[in-house]
Design a binder for these strands. Sequence first.
DNA 1: CCGCATCCGATTGGATACTG
DNA 2: CAGTATCCAATCGGATGCGG
Lengths: 209, 209
Amino acid sequence: MPTSRSYRDSCGIARALDVVGERWALLVVRELLLVPQRFSELRHALPHASSNLLADRLRELEHHGVIGRRKLTSTAGPQVYELTEWGRKLEPIVLALGDWGIDAPNPPEPTSLSATSVLIFLRGAARPDSPPIVCRLDLDGSVWTVCVASGKVQVHSGEPATADISLRTDPKTLGSLLADPASLDTALAEGSVALVGDLLALKRLLYGG
Amino acid sequence: MPTSRSYRDSCGIARALDVVGERWALLVVRELLLVPQRFSELRHALPHASSNLLADRLRELEHHGVIGRRKLTSTAGPQVYELTEWGRKLEPIVLALGDWGIDAPNPPEPTSLSATSVLIFLRGAARPDSPPIVCRLDLDGSVWTVCVASGKVQVHSGEPATADISLRTDPKTLGSLLADPASLDTALAEGSVALVGDLLALKRLLYGG
DNA sequence: CCGCATCCGATTGGATACTG
DNA sequence: CAGTATCCAATCGGATGCGG
């Protein structure tokens, strides 16, 4: 009679929530939107989730077919978690939920902000009509490529072939920069942001124009 | 130090989940998408949620500004819960989540299916390019108007001014009908669906064509 | 270190009963 | 009808352990 934890409701909304409605589940999906990640990377991205809980969610999401795991090297070695084809269809929903949540009150400090989160926000905020640019972005040591070209903003993991500008900072600082353009100068001055390349190009990328 | 139940993550997605991520919250929102509802109506729509939990969620959603409560008569009397302007912005997100959840495995029986759920599904499934029609729909005693006109499908609570066809059934039967067109004839025969008007018009409304 | 599993106190969810 | 009060089971969060 434990009747599991299902909503036992035939509606598609309830059935979706049976799969991704439990605590942390959609944040795991968020983390996997840009790139497959390893267990330890997910832990770093979601520092307020305990390890057992994260392991539970990953197992459940895998069991429901939202994510899969793939070995990086054949036969024993590190593995990454990635969205399945079905799981990837959550992307527009999760992004829309993020837009909606912008208007919510801020959570109590201290807060976390993962690289994936801020990159998703940057991708949505960057003006696609700004001039083409390739930016190398080093966030907490992991390297990303932000590319604006022909009206599209792309973000993916790894080194760019060539870069117009190069930025090194951490997710929370980048988040502050996006929220408050005025903070860019002081961040550069105190070294929390290191820039190689044209400052004006960076401002166009982050704030449009 | 209880550090509440917040995700403590600055990302908009996490902040949205701080508001509507708790159990039952989004199903309450779903119930209020079509029409404001009273406490007892919500209980009937979500029979697997206990009363204290429903009261808790309503209080929290109100506190966060997703829903509000309004007195039907001035000074003491019944009250209804309704979405705020901000809460109404969840509609496309919740509908998209429902579309995604259609592909999820069905929950274990027995399942519930509220009038709102099935009407939302009907509204999305009905072909807007079918001929104009006004349908009076009596679901478990509450009356709705389904109106197809000029390429739009509308569903709202209450009696239509005039109706081309009139249907009386319950949400679960209507859900079965939408899922399986072949079940319509037997449902009519055994009386679980009562139709007044043109059967062909009903089939066009439910299944397109 | 990485990828979990185990243990435990604090919260939360669920069912029933009860009150204004 | 519209919720509270109460009790108990399940879950969460945090710390720790542990094999590879």
